[in-house]
């Protein structure tokens, strides 16, 4: 049976979102230097406009039956939208607008990669269980992605402080180490249960389809889960925090990205 290709041409909202993500990326990156306050305000509002346009685009594609759980590329677009939404909420807090310098370019790259890559085949045999698995995995990974961005900023700021680099990027603009560490811990605590449910749903779905558990993605996904489980456990039982916690977050997210990349390649290029 020939696989169905599920896609629809990009709409105006997509181009608006892309344009505003480009502008927001430039403004946020320039905000890392000493700039007048209006530049930071403009950066935040540009991201908000991009987020709304991106939401309209996702809604429109949903109407056209190309919803976020249709394929990996749609899921990636949805992931970047959640990431930006979470940033918009967090950026109101002091010292966290610096996240935008990472989130805006990341959202731009992920969205561009997702939409401008070959559409590939639709996921075959996509049941409600499969849709739930893709949707919850997307949300979980988006939250982990934000936790990872926070951890990267933590590591950069820690390096500035340890090496006494008072001119370093982020030194003056970033939130404190303790704030970043606490935020990363909270994000992982939110993402972990969602990701765990997604893993369980995925397991049942794969079992139902009787395709076996032989694919390389499955053990790597387990590494993601184990890394975040160890992080949660370490934080609560052993007082794990700071640099070690940040590195473990990076490891877990790296594994999740590997899984996504493998899925993406499989679906887009048919590897």
């Amino acid at each position: 049976m020939a696989a169905e290709v599920v896609t629809t041409p990009p709409q105006l909202a997509f181009y608006v979102a892309m344009t505003f993500y480009v502008v927001a990326s430039v403004l946020h990156l320039s905000s890392l230097a000493q700039v007048p306050p209006w530049v930071k305000q403009a950066a935040r509002w540009t991201v908000i406009v991009a987020f709304i346009a991106h939401g309209v685009d996702i809604g429109w594609r949903g109407v056209e039956q190309v919803h976020p759980a249709t394929s990996v590329r749609e899921a990636l677009g949805f992931l970047s939208w959640i990431l930006v939404g979470a940033y918009v909420v967090l950026s109101r807090r002091k010292g966290l607008s610096v996240l935008g310098a990472f989130v805006a370019p990341l959202a731009l790259i992920v969205l561009a990669t997702a939409r401008l890559s070959p559409s590939g085949d639709a996921v075959t045999g996509l049941s409600s269980l499969g849709r739930l698995h893709i949707a919850s995995a997307t949300v979980g990974v988006a939250v982990f992605c934000l936790a990872t961005v926070v951890s990267v900023i933590y590591l950069m700021q820690e390096r500035n402080l340890k090496s006494k680099n008072f001119d370093g990027v982020l030194f003056r603009s970033s939130a404190s180490l303790e704030t970043l560490d606490r935020l990363s811990a909270r994000l992982v605590a939110i993402g972990f249960p969602i990701f765990t449910i997604s893993m369980m749903l995925g397991g049942v779905w794969v079992a139902q389809r009787e395709q076996g558990f032989g694919r390389i993605e499955y053990p790597i996904a387990a590494v993601t889960w184990l890394a975040f489980a160890a992080l949660m456990l370490g934080r609560s039982m052993r007082g794990l925090q700071g640099r070690r916690a940040a590195l473990l977050t990076l490891l877990g997210f790296g594994a999740a990205m590997l899984v996504l990349a493998l899925y993406f390649l499989r679906r887009s290029v048919g590897v």
Binding site: Q34, P37, S174, S176, L177, E178
Partner: peptide
Amino acid sequence: TETGISRGAANVSSVAVELAKRVFG
């Protein structure tokens, strides 16, 4: 508000507090 003229502490004791705040908030 419109320039960074008051940004950053200007004596050793205040700078110490500023640095501590970069660690603890």
